[in-house]
Design a protein around this nucleic acid. Structure first.
Lengths: 218, 218
DNA sequence: TAGATTGTTAATCGATTAACAATC
DNA sequence: TAGATTGTTAATCGATTAACAATC
């Protein structure tokens, strides 16, 4: 399995395919065509076939894709056919929310350790995990073989936390803080800052009736 | 100001520019070149200039961009130079987290109403807002002129909430539930499902030493 | 003036879509 | 067999980058 040339656009779609396939599976649908997936996801069927074909031949001509088989294959590609351990720093509301979601998730990503910078949080409980102090982060990451770090601290603490994750040896970071973080290039960082999502959404609001009367020009 | 032909890629970058510019402003830096922005954001300077040029001539040849002026212009483009009211459904941990972030935000997007489906949540407080029942949603959205809805309920309730937001007349929806929602095409929907972010990140984990020994082929 | 940097055109690169032979 | 649908090549479309005249 070679990954080098797969574009990020393709990788972003894989989890979406997985979501739909899981839904089909739960409704006991056994086979699906790229056509049907395309309708559900508003994507071109050729694109879906091409995306999947990067990784192998998973379909059957004239038939379509076996739902269970394709789920298994995509899980392999995304490496979630094995348990991937995740640590989270920042035991606030967002941290709690992520730990809870985690609980219901079918995929094998498990938050197994929670840390916080603030002494009053240490020792409290988050979804069956005891919040630990930051100076146990490096040891815990190594001992538990944690591979991904989630950052849910305020922006001004985020770089510091990222540095500690990197030093501890995580391979990827999911950053929820509204900050641009510097990490070595071998560490993959994804930003999930919802304030930017919200601003992007604002752009698409209709212009009319917002009191700001520069007309929409054709 | 005409928006029709601006690509989504461009719109997604605008909030990032705004973030960096706000940071520069807070450090009392008055002027910045596309070159400098490019270094900070890991983007090609030509791309930054081109993105901005879609909306007007904001820079000065030989000088660069005035930080304050460019902030103001991008805020206009994103329509966050005016207050945009937002309603949130789902007063769980994630809902709390978003309301809190909101409090510290510089941009004028304000969550002004919080709703929940479950009776035991009604009347409780979230960041100075009283949680309201769903049957007040339509009225509140209209009275307060709320334009964006945020969904932070479990996946199986999400479509129902989306329908109510649409019926109430919101123009955009930010969906945090891991579900694919159907809305009329005039309503803009953005998905901010972090489980998908996490799966996407897993793809990039190094393959070695994960116990799953199909070698990385060249 | 010389150096810097924009706005913009042209070139390149990459991603999406169409089309179709292979085949279930 | 006829109809359906894949995997893949070729065509198209769109986004990024390079280059440079304009000009501060």
């Amino acid at each position: 399995m070679k990954h080098a040339k797969i574009s990020e656009a393709v990788v972003r779609r894989l989890p979406i395919y997985l979501q739909v396939l899981n839904d089909l599976h739960s409704r006991e649908i056994q086979t699906v065509s790229s056509q049907e997936l395309g309708v559900k996801l508003d994507l071109n069927p050729a694109q879906i076939r091409k995306d999947l074909a990067y990784f192998g031949e998973f379909g059957r001509k004239g038939i379509g894709y076996d739902v269970i088989y394709l789920i298994e294959k995509i899980r392999q590609i995304l490496k979630v056919n094995q348990t991937i351990k995740v640590a989270l720093v920042g035991a606030g509301n967002l941290g709690h929310a992520l730990c809870n979601y985690n609980k219901y998730s079918k995929d094998n990503m498990k938050i197994t350790a929670v840390f916080d910078i603030h002494p009053e949080k240490i020792g409290t409980n988050v979804n069956n995990l005891v919040v630990m102090p930051m100076d146990e982060l490096a040891r815990t990451v190594k001992e538990q073989n944690i591979r991904i770090g989630i950052i849910t601290v305020p922006a001004y603490e985020a770089q510091n936390v990222a540095n500690q994750f990197v030093a501890a040896g995580v391979e990827g970071i999911l950053n929820f803080a509204p900050a641009i973080l510097r990490v070595p290039e071998e560490v993959r960082i994804h930003n999930a800052d919802f304030t930017k999502e919200l601003l992007g959404l604002a752009y698409y609001l209709n212009h009319e009736g917002d009191g700001n009367d520069d007309a929409i020009v054709d």
